[in-house]
Amino acid sequence: MNISPDDVVFWQWGGFPLNATVAYTWLVMALLTLISWLVTRRLSTGTEISRWQNLLEVLVSGIRDQIRDVSRQDPGRYLPFVGTLFLYIAMANLLNIVPGYMAPTGSLSTTTALAICVFVAVPLFGIAYEGPVTYLKHYVKPTPLMLPFNIVGEFSRTIALAVRLYGNIMSGTVIAAILLSLTPYFFPVVMQLLGLLTGMIQAYIFAILAMVYIASATSVQTGNKDNLPNNKLSNNNTDKAG
């Protein structure tokens, strides 16, 4: 039984295998891009809009609202990154209902890749927001003694993110497979539904967590300047969420 889509190799070119993870990722990318392009080709700026445009607008404005709620900042800068995280994971998980499809998010490679993206994006956004020196000073606060802990926290956060998504999606797939062998026909369908639900929730959690990390990297400094107790509170919250 192939648990990871990494192991399913469609085509090998030299040392680079074209496995199911990459192939289905391309499928998801193609679908998302195609839908977006088809819909945004003819956008209406009036009050009469098509259903698809309405759907996309609801999605985009919903993501923007979530980002604004979490970061208390203008969502424009974070929208492409966080929104794409959500849309990609959601679409990848949603397609699980298609027979023969294997969710790329069920591969630890994909989730690791996404986590690494977040890992890199957090300091990048922080530096872009407040400059490199101010951001890096953040690691030696409150005292330089905390520097190793801060770095460890940074890494552990990334790993937790990766494993959480991978574990959920993979476990869903694995449970479905096991149940299918034990009690065929009906019960796996229920599990499949549950898997869809979990997939959506995971997409949401992943995107929100990424946003929270980025927000903590950008807004903590502001909070320090303005109001200490509030800042501590938000730090605690962030730790719990992580």
């Binding site: 990871s4 990494d6 496995n19 490679s109 690791t112 890749a113 996404l114 690494i116 993206c117």
Partner: peptide
């Protein structure tokens, strides 16, 4: 297991 080639490919894809 983590296939680092796939990981890099996925990063690029993302």
């Amino acid at each position: 297991s983590v296939d680092w080639i796939t990981v890099s490919a996925q990063i690029v894809n993302f």
